[in-house]
Structure formats: structure tokens, C-alpha cells
Design a binder for these strands. Structure first.
Length: 420
RNA sequence: GUGGGUGUAGCUCAGUUGGUUAGAGCAUCAGGUUGUGGCCCUGAGGGCCGUGGGUUCAAUUCCCAUCACUCACCCCA
């Protein structure tokens, strides 16, 4: 048996309504904040992601689905959206048309990691990119949207964490300090953290090893190195969040894995999804657009994982069971009346009713069982005495009342039945 | 890439201290009199017991390998 590729999942009809629910709420809230949807191709030239996300990041160095096409071009299935949106922003000169572009997306992403709870190789994210303003209120707006969507979906066990990463210059200075601090302590670190020391020193704060945590507990913090401007910006974001009722905690150890962040970084985590607890992450990226060849333009955005959100909703029991109902089920009494039943079904369907009938020549009893299983509001009986009178019988499935309606005035009679 | 757990019916799971036709519940299908559902009753279909090898008179059961799924590490949504 051929099965879905490792780390990919089919969304079956029984669960599709949950997706519709999330997607429609996402679109509604983005629309209220005046974000417009952007759709970019599923793959891009590989070099985009290296330049955008950072060659040294895990995503680029070991997780990308990269292949060479028949034209010998190296292409990559997009592992995240920001680089792709920025590419489109530059390519179509969106910045020349208005001072700020507020964009959102809902799309699938690909990363070749080992799957686990809340982590797939093909997964879906919705997110936003607000490009063109340095205002801290845009940072706050992005966080408000993310928080509003998650809480309107019914999630309660949420924590918003924010931090400021300052500017690249500040970060470099800080990294040097951190290295100095650690220079005589590296022997105490775990094997993994020794690697981090070289590759991504900021991540040392994330370690779960007790030794590492002890070593890092007295380490200098980036937040103490921020210049006045950065502090002012960070402070304005915090004040705006308070004024707009978004609870948050400042986490000086919050470091995001993508190279392009500046100033604000944030994450929203759930206590209900297992080890991969981040439902959403984002931040400001004031240098990315220039690095990708555009005019210097500031930006801020976030991305949220739909599968993780659905998992959290399931574990918080906020997924409401959807009881599907149909308007009519056609009962064909004699088997040779299938064509007439089909004709009436089509007529009703063209009048926007949800209609089903039997296509397997089954007994009346079996058809009734099916009508019941589908939660039909009415059954329509074609055949027998009524049919000889050029009529059909209508049965209300909840109350059981039956009545006879003439085929001559079929549409208007049906309307009357439904109005009762 | 590394480690733990699990693979028996469409789904959730029993089971065999190695022994003859491998079970249950749910789901599906049919029937419980002439054209009537839900509840109930009866019956049916559906399994290379993940795959390959080994031990044995005999393996779904024991051993080895392998694959898949799953959780965790790394990292991230």
C-alpha cells in the first residue's frame, strides 16, 4: 500500500470543517485590521532562503526540500513565508505604491525535520507582514492580531512572550561580551552547547541541561546592552500591549532562530500541545528588505502554525462537534423511478437545497436508515399511490408528519412545507 | 541525525505461559412480512497478527534484522 510521505498528512472530510473555521476567522480578523492576502509560489530559487533566513540557521543548513529542475535551476519548497513575501514586495515595487503594505497569507510550508507532536514536514501557517513602518504600534498591531486570532479561536492556555533583540550592531557587541563571560566556563557546558557557542551563541539560553542553565544564570543579558532608541521602541510596544489588553511577559532569554530579526521578537506558546509549544512567532526585521536587494525598508511580521493551533484546540476541548444536516433525502419506492428521483434531486439542488438520494438500488428501509444517518430534515418519497396521482409524499423526519404535494406546483409546495 | 515506545479487522483494542477454524466493541451491509428511520434483536462480510529471516514437530506468540507509526532531543510553526 502506498502511504502518505513521512511527515505529511491528509486532511479528511471529517475534519475539514475545523480548517474552514480557522481559515475563515483568520481572514475575518486580518480584514478588520486591513491586511490583504498575498499568495506566492510554492517554491522559490534556493538562494532566496539562504540570503533571507541565514545560511547558518537550521532551516537553511539542514531542513530544506531542495531540488534541481530540468532547467538546472536549484529550487526549494518554501520553508517559511517572510523571505518569499519580501521577494514579491521588491519584485513588484509594492513599496512605491503606498507607504505601508499590510499583507497576510495562509499557506503550506516544508521542512525536512523528524516529525513529532505538532511538527510535520508539510505544515500550514497563516501570518502577516507589515512592511514600511518603524512605528512601535505596528509591532503592537502584529502581536494584537496574533493574540486576538488565537483567543477568538477559544484558546485559553496562552502565554505571550516578548523581547527586544536591538540592532545587529548591539547584538554583535553583546555576543562579544557573552563570549568573554563564557571563555573560562566552556568546560562546564554540555556537548551540544559547546557547538552552540560557535554557531549560535544566543541559543545557549534555551538549553534544558541543568549545568547549562546554572552557567547561564549569571550571564549578561542582551536587554542590558540596548541603546536608548531600542529601549524606547521596546517600551512603546509594551505600553501599547498593556493599553490594548494583551497580557505578556518579557522574556530576556527569548531568541528566535532566524537571522533577520531586529528589535521586537515575540512568541505565543500554549501549554496544551506537548513539547513543540510555540503556536506563533514573529518580530521586526528592519534590514531584511535591503539585504534581499530592495530599498531600505523596515518590516515586522509573524507566522502561526495551523496544525499546532488545531492540536491546542482539540486539547482544550474548544473544537465544537459539527453535526452536518441535509435538507432532503429522496426515497425511491420502486427501483425503476431512479431517474425521476434524480430529476427531483437536481431541481432541488439547483434551488440551493442540500439533497441526497440512493444510488445503490437499496430497500426503502435502507434508504430511510441512510436518511437518518445523514440527519435529513425531510424525506421525499417518489412512487406508490401518490406518484400515480402525480404527487410525492414529504415526511418531516423530526416530527414524523407526512403530507402529499403535487408535482405540478412542486417548487412552491416545497417552499410552503419548509416555511411551516 | 540520536534515543524511548508501539505495530492484531475500516477505527479503538483484547488474546495466545508457543499448539488445531485469531476475538470484542464501534462502523459497514442484509434481515426482523406488503411503502417508514432513530432504540432493540438476528445474521453477514472484512485479518499473509507490519515485512524478512532464525529457533522449533509447530511461531501471531520466542530471537534477530528491517520498515512504518509515535513521543522526545536538536530546532522550530
Amino acid at each position: 500500500m502506498i502511504k502518505a510521505v513521512t511527515g505529511t498528512k491528509d486532511v479528511l472530510p471529517s475534519e475539514i470543517k475545523n480548517w474552514y473555521y480557522v481559515e475563515s476567522l483568520v481572514k475575518e480578523i486580518f480584514t478588520n485590521f486591513n491586511y490583504r492576502e498575498i499568495r506566492t509560489p510554492i517554491f522559490e530559487e534556493t538562494s532566496l532562503f539562504g540570503r533571507g533566513i541565514g545560511e547558518e540557521t537550521d532551516i537553511v543548513s539542514k531542513e530544506m526540500y531542495t531540488f534541481v529542475d530540468r532547467g538546472n535551476t536549484s529550487l526549494t519548497l518554501k520553508p517559511e513565508m517572510t523571505a518569499a513575501v519580501v521577494r514579491a514586495f521588491i519584485e513588484h515595487s509594492l513599496g512605491a505604491q503606498q507607504s505601508i503594505n499590510k499583507l497576510f497569507y495562509i499557506s503550506q510550508m516544508f521542512r525536512q525535520e523528524r516529525p513529532q507532536a505538532g511538527r510535520l514536514r508539510q505544515f500550514h501557517q497563516f501570518g502577516a507582514e507589515a512592511i514600511g513602518s518603524v512605528s512601535p504600534f505596528i509591532d503592537a498591531e502584529i502581536i494584537v492580531i496574533a493574540y486576538d486570532i488565537l483567543s477568538k479561536l477559544g484558546l485559553k492556555d496562552l502565554t505571550v512572550k516578548i523581547n527586544s533583540l536591538g540592532t545587529p550592531a548591539i547584538r554583535e557587541k553583546y555576543k562579544t561580551e557573552l563570549k568573554n563571560y563564557l571563555s573560562d566556563k566552556s568546560d562546564l557546558l554540555s556537548q551540544e552547547s559547546k557547538v552552540r557557542l560557535e554557531k549560535n551563541i544566543l541559543r545557549l539560553f534555551d538549553s534544558k541541561s541543568e549545568n547549562d542553565i546554572a552557567v547561564m544564570s549569571n550571564a549578561p543579558l542582551l536587554i542590558d546592552f540596548l541603546d536608548e532608541e531600542s529601549l524606547l521602541h521596546f517600551n512603546s510596544v509594551k505600553v501599547a500591549l498593556v493599553e490594548n489588553s494583551v497580557p505578556f511577559e518579557v522574556d530576556p532569554k527569548l531568541v528566535r532562530g532566524l537571522d533577520y530579526y531586529t528589535h521586537t521578537a515575540f512568541e505565543i506558546i500554549s501549554g496544551k500541545v506537548g513539547s513543540q509549544s510555540a503556536l506563533c512567532g514573529g518580530g521586526r526585521y528592519d534590514n531584511l528588505i535591503e539585504e534581499l536587494g530592495g530599498k531600505p525598508t523596515p518590516g515586522v511580521g509573524f507566522a502561526a502554525g495551523i496544525e499546532r493551533i488545531l492540536l491546542a484546540m482539540e486539547n482544550e476541548n474548544v473544537i465544537t462537534k459539527n453535526y452536518d444536516v441535509i435538507d432532503f433525502y429522496l426515497i425511491r419506492i420502486e427501483s425503476d423511478l431512479e431517474s425521476k428521483a434524480f430529476e427531483l434531486a437536481t431541481l432541488l439542488r439547483r434551488n440551493n437545497y442540500l439533497v441526497e438520494m440512493d444510488y445503490s438500488n437499496r430497500s426503502v428501509k435502507a434508504q430511510m436508515r441512510e436518511a437518518n444517518r445523514l440527519n435529513a430534515k425531510f424525506t421525499l418519497w417518489v412512487g406508490g399511490d401518490e406518484y400515480k396521482d402525480d404527487s410525492v409524499m414529504v415526511k418531516n423526519m423530526s416530527g414524523g408528519e407526512q403530507s402529499k404535494i403535487s408535482l405540478k406546483n412542486f417548487s412552491s409546495e416545497i417552499k410552503k412545507i419548509l416555511e411551516k
